[in-house]
Design a protein around this nucleic acid. Structure first.
Lengths: 261, 261
DNA sequence: TCCTTTTAAG
DNA sequence: CTTAAAAGGA
């Protein structure tokens, strides 16, 4: 059987919120090392990758590797039935037709039990990039969310330009031009609330704000977001979640022709 | 060139919120004494007058009088990209096609730069009344907002009746009649949180609540609002903003025939 | 202008 | 933690 108990159930709720707008259905792959999911978004433009390590659960038991084919909308609906302080347990058989979600209130007085039908989903081959990056930018997740929201008022895409002094986000549209410059902090790298940049090569790339805005649904999961940028390669947008894993999004840059439209 | 730096940038955001629902486009007139704006609302019923004195900015520089023709909706969108604690700088050339808004975070780590196209706007002649008033009523701005909101539930217009004892706001509609009476406080005039009345002549006039409600969008700008009322003349609704200026609205009373409708 | 979201208080 | 009020976004 498979059983994974997550004491901080609110995390599972947040992970679900961070995926459901992008991916309609996907396989949750459960193995001894943990639960992982990779999927393209519905329009096959961006890619989501999720990892929940087994040591983030207590207990975690996986007798046999299984792949749970899940309709995200249905699972999101069920997750909304969990309170933020509930303990969430995911359970299924070795050859499952169903998955069960159990929500237990902290005082043990309320136990909710939701059984959801599974589906057969062809696991598509996903080329998850494994690149050296030209620049790795860390910043407060809320700040990145704010930048994406603000620049969406100006235009459809954002140009991210990174050099040793800092990073600039810019957009243009009918009403004018917007530019947001962040200086790198002089303090030790990756401290919370700080902008830090590891730079190998200066880089300037353009991305569709629509997708970046979807990615920022993960903001409640982490205080810091990391953008790993590389010329002509997809950007990786990562939210690391303490003690359990991460959610990563990948999005290819717009090529020059598209930029000029 | 023209450059005006406002340390308390949130003020500019609030001024924008106080205008944008009423006026679609207007000229911001920039001179050595400050920035002013006068405009009729879209339906040409009420009038807005705004003054931001140069001494409220630091620094303020205006080499040549200029008139910035601004689409309020676009500017409002840009102002929403400023955080409340940002320092806002407005900048343009002597013969500008564009205006630039710069938002600097207090710690200087984030600098946003929005460039907006200007438009040519015919400056209409505005008959701003310069009247002796029969009554000048000061009251907490939030109280006036509450009165307008409450009476909007009852009817479309409010009758403001002022005599030496106090001021009464009344509305009637299909469901009945609502009356709100405020007594003048016995304390020294114009202390914050107090109702005070300077009365020359008792007066009773009726106004469209729709517009008064628009005016109360300026409530966050000031703790006190002043209503200057005069028989048969437009009421002036003024919000004075410490150290920088004011926003004033003018609205003609309904005449008797309309009142009876 | 209305609704969702976020935050503050009980 | 639940509810309610205020703020922000659509």
């Amino acid at each position: 059987m498979f059983e994974a108990r997550l004491v901080q159930g609110s995390l599972m709720k947040k992970f679900m919120e961070a995926i459901k707008d992008l991916v309609k259905e996907a396989n949750w792959d459960c193995t001894g090392t943990g639960i992982s999911l990779q999927a393209m978004d519905t329009s096959h433009v961006s890619l989501v990758s999720l990892l929940l390590r087994s040591d983030g659960f207590d207990p975690y038991r996986c007798d046999r590797n299984i792949s749970l084919g899940i309709n995200m909308e249905s699972m999101a609906k069920i997750m909304k039935c969990a309170s933020n302080d509930d303990v969430i347990t995911i359970r299924s058989e070795d050859h499952p037709d169903n998955v069960t979600f159990v929500f237990e209130s902290p005082n043990q007085e309320k136990v909710c039990d939701y059984e959801m039908k599974l589906m057969d989903i062809d696991s598509e081959h996903l080329g998850i990039p494994d690149t050296e990056y030209d620049a790795i930018i860390s910043m407060p997740a809320s700040e990145f969310q704010r930048i994406c929201r603000d620049l969406s008022n100006i235009g459809d895409s954002v140009k991210i330009t990174c050099n040793k002094d800092g990073v600039q986000f810019s957009a243009q549209g009918d009403t004018g031009i917007g530019k947001i410059a962040l200086k790198q902090n002089a303090v030790i790298d990756k401290e919370d609330g700080q902008v830090s940049i590891e730079l190998n090569d200066p880089v300037s790339l353009t991305f569709a704000l629509r997708y970046l805005t979807f990615f920022t649904k993960a903001t409640p999961l982490a205080s810091t977001v990391t953008l790993s940028v590389s010329a002509k390669n997809p950007v990786a947008v990562e939210y690391r979640v303490d003690d359990i894993g991460y959610i990563r999004y990948y999005l290819a840059p717009k090529i020059e022709e598209e930029e000029e439209n």
